[in-house]
Amino acid sequence: MKDFGYTLQPDFSIDFDRNDKRMMLYVVNHEPSLNLCIGCGSCTATCSTGHFTSFNIRAIHTLLRRGETHQLKQEIRKCMFCGKCQLVCPRGVNLRNVILRINRAIEQIG
């Protein structure tokens, strides 16, 4: 970003250029079906965890894609792993493996 010699507030927008996309690449490499997501939200709608708390697997996926990894690290821990999301996905995304791989990526990339 160009330095104009002054700042007002930290930039709130997603800084896609600067964000770390390693985690996204790792997950997508290990579970390419994630690329098929059309963001319909069926997974989140049916999610057992989503009934109790703000857990939103569709949003987590979107954050992952944008490289906004700091937010999703806490969120991903809430998943109960029941697999309902996978059963309703109209694109056949292998969601349990996505979650497993995000966890692994957090372990490996930090």
């Binding site: 963001g39 319909c40 939200g41 069926s42 997974c43 989140t44 709608a45 049916t46 999610c47 989503g50 009934h51 703000s54 939103n56 569709r58 949003a59």
Partner: peptide, 12 residues
């Protein structure tokens, strides 16, 4: 009906 209101990001 259960769906995600994807524009608010919450189950509905």
């Amino acid at each position: 009906l259960k769906a995600e209101d994807t524009l608010t990001g919450r189950p509905l």
